[in-house]
Nucleic acid binder design. Sequence first.
DNA 1: CCCCCCCC
Length: 533
Amino acid sequence: MIIMDLTVLTHGSQVRSQIGNPIPYTEGANNSTDFIQETQRYRVRSENPTHQPARKEMYNNGQISVTGSGMTSYPFEGMKTQPLSSVNPYHTSLTLRSRVTLKTPIKTWNNTRGSGKLFSFSLVDESGEIRATGFNEQVDQFYDILEEGKVYYISEFIVKPANKSFSNIKHDFEITLSKLTSIAPCHDEKDIPFTRFNFLLINTLSEVDINSIVDVIGVCKNVGDVVIFTSKTTNTELKKREITLVDHSNTSVNVTLWGEQAEQFDGSLQPIVAIKGGRMTEFRGARSISPMTTSIVQVNPDIADAQRLRGWFDNFGSRLKTKSISARCDSVGEGFGGNWMTLQEARRAQLGTSDKPDYFTCKAMVTMIRSENVVYKACPNGDCNKKVIDLGNNLYKCEKCNCEYPNYQYRLLIGVCLADWSTSLWVTCFNDVAQEILGATAQEVGLSENNNRFLYESYFRKPLFNNFIFRLRAKTEAYNDEKRLKFTIAKVMAVDFNKYNKCLLGSIKSILARVATPCSDLAHHTQLYDARH
DNA sequence: CCCCCCCC
């Protein structure tokens, strides 16, 4: 016995079922069992157990036709459903039983290929998850029906490959609703899971690619105010709120909430916030997570991770000093100018890609030095430093000062390859820094260049494979029409091991926090550490 | 058929 909804396309006639029997039962807005009205919906019993309730079926009794559509759970009851993981483009006619975990607002678009409206939603069942989208008429038909958190039967849909770069849903395909689609609520839904998160520890978020989609959970340690500003690109008013989440890796990350979510967020009681499908963004070395319209943001979710985190934070996490992956400078590099990074971290953070230069500190080894065309004859006048033109008559012309001099001074401009355990990097260094690295004056180097080649080369060999602490400057500079990211050594320092060991101890402390999975271990180690230092 | 996801 199957009951289905019929939308009646013609007026005032008795309907016969698909298999030719008179309709034995109807209910709905109109209780007439004999006549149906145009555009009214009726629930109709069918004796055909093989009937596909979601198909667009034409019913004929000679005069009228009706189309099966709309909402009822009865057609699906007792019907075999298939797991979300089995959805693929080659098997049509699957019936799914899954929970809507997210429904986006309706969006309209208007581009060269046309215009329209759409919404999308996420489905979860025991086997996995999938994303679904409804366009135009399907928006009208299904948008109001689908509710977040509820379970539905869905059948007769189109299956297309999923575009992974726009979704965090782990499925190779996605669903598009069609004219034939039927969706019906399922009230027996206890066995269907809710949103599945794949939380990453916050300390590991410094390693993921920028723009990747991540799940994160943390205690909202700090809340910013709502900030309203106008976007220069779209000229629209935007609202944002920055919050800071910390987890038991004792690391924090900033999250930027937008629009209504920003306005309605209440962080006054330091709630747990869980985010599924947030986008990792980066601005000048500071990372933050931005939820999108397809992200799920849950405050104090009823999940085990949240309870564990609450316990950790309330008992001792709140008292620990937190490392942030959203801060431009971290305290580990204190004493060396801050923002201590490996060369790889500097590259990953895309330092120097904004208008202003970015500085960071690292310990690295000199592995190569270019020795050709690195010492030049410069203007002897104070800080001019401009390369002079040898006039060949023992006079040297500086075009900057517009002056001819009988003398010049040597200056160095060298290219050095630095390497630490993470990667290597070619950097430029100017006179003073170059002299420190070579352990020789520009004058000595310059004089030896043509007179004592062996000595000259030795200046460039001596520093090789020595370690230094470097303060590096990253900046994008324009050469002709080309933009290049350049690294310059702003300062070079001998490795002061007393100082450097303190940095390493700081790192060990933060690593301890990262690896201490049971909360009590973390507290124990950190207290132990604090007691000793 | 969308696929933009914001700002410094």
